[in-house]
Nucleic acid binder design. Structure first.
Lengths: 240, 240
DNA sequence: CGTCGCGTTGACGTAGCTCAACCTACGTGG
DNA sequence: CCACGTAGGTTGAGCTACGTCAACGCGACG
């Protein structure tokens, strides 16, 4: 970023370092991990928090890799992937902006999945030691951490109950409703068919066919930017 | 239990109260939530921890119910169930002895699933206030709580990657290996076909047929006590 | 221009669902 | 004691939703 300021990116292959984080003026401060903390506490300890950019399809870390940092998604979309020995690829869950990734290293030594960017993604890299230090003096962080863990758990349960259950039509409909961006659920994130299939436990062809059908019915329009949906219609399909 | 000692079980319908917990001498103390705490800290604050017994098929709490306690499984097996509006029943995960149930009330007000006993189960009921009080003065509990949360998350991920993916044969094989009791994975918990189906996202008939086939192959014996399996053979089936 | 990545569509096979009959073990009430 | 109902499991026959394989389309890019 600045001349003479060396990027400390030895720890991460694909991401590019774009500076130190200014957590106090983060544009999504209200939803971030440290949102409960006071201004001055932030200023003191968040110096070693890096700001990263991860290009679509590049990976942040791999399953089984040793790690000493958690990440928060500032912008974009990240997928957690599990590759089975037989080659099966299953997306475990998607992380939207505000989500925390890799919390397992707070408890374990290694990451449990492969984290890959679906779209171009901005992240904060928070070293584990920053969290453990802050944790010692600030009880509010415990609550924040617990909340994040519960969020991940809720996401996982959603994948089980909504995205791995029922007909292909129901799953795709639920998927589209879940990856909605705005509160009215009219525009959604864009994912490749292959990713959708890996998330829903279906094949690319089946997903493609269901998408085609939804489009024929006018429930879905795939423009240049992002897919737009009719949430009411899809809600009906989702419940059967 | 003792005459004149009234059971404080107004909060729970199906479980029966069987006394206060003696956490210091708990037979599974090493694996329990408070295993990191010192003896004297336990003695002080764990008075309001109840010891419960839950008969097979009765439920501990329901989805959406407001709650103010988490539970740990001492003996037996508990299922977390999600009932979809259309009647679909999906088991989200199974809790073996040592697991913590209902941690969402540490962060939220209500439970996120229905918790039901698969077999006769012994539980400890730990009020949320006990945890929040202990948390204030004992940092070791944070670690313990995080570890439990991560355990739940790992369990959830297991359901996604192992039990909701692949052929019916692979799923059933992986299921049998996962519900093994002993380290050699030769004997497993017993579940009704209906529960297995709800956990694997299959139908009772399919599960029954796969079981029959495994038995014909000699990979599985269902005795009076608990099913016994050939882990090597099932491992082979599990990976495809 | 050819290649590559991604998506679509068709033809066909099959794994798993559905519906139905039936069986055994077990409990309950006359 | 038997008669009956019920809960859980098994098995078969047929259907269909989804997977598989293959061809093709189309834009991006070198």
């Amino acid at each position: 970023m600045l001349a003479g300021m060396k990027s400390p990116m030895s720890y991460c292959t694909d991401a590019t370092w774009v500076g130190r984080s200014d957590c106090q003026h983060c544009d999504i401060r209200g939803t971030m991990l440290f949102s409960e903390l006071q201004e001055r506490e932030l200023g003191d300890l968040l110096r070693p928090v890096d700001n990263l950019r991860l290009a679509a399809k590049s990976s942040l870390y791999h399953e089984g890799e040793v790690g000493d940092a958690v990440f928060t998604v500032r912008k974009g979309l990240v997928r957690l992937v599990h590759y089975a020995p037989n080659g099966t690829r299953r997306i475990v869950r998607l992380l939207k902006s505000g989500s925390v990734i890799g919390m397992e290293v707070l408890v374990n030594t290694h990451y449990h999945h492969c984290a890959e960017a679906v779209s171009d993604t901005d992240l904060c890299r928070i070293p584990v030691e920053v969290i453990t230090q802050l944790e010692g003096r600030n009880p509010a962080l415990h609550t924040a951490l617990m909340r994040r863990w519960q969020n991940s758990l809720d996401d996982a349960d959603m994948v089980i109950t909504q995205l791995s259950t029922g007909s292909s039509h129901a799953r795709v409909a639920r998927f589209l409703l879940l990856v909605a961006i705005d509160p009215h659920r009219t525009e959604c994130h864009h994912l490749m068919r292959e990713d959708i299939a890996a998330l829903l436990g279906l094949t690319v062809e089946t997903v493609s066919r269901v998408f085609a059908e939804f489009k024929r019915n006018g429930w879905l329009v795939e423009g240049a930017d992002c897919p737009r949906i009719n949430p009411q219609a899809l809600e009906r399909v989702a419940t059967d």
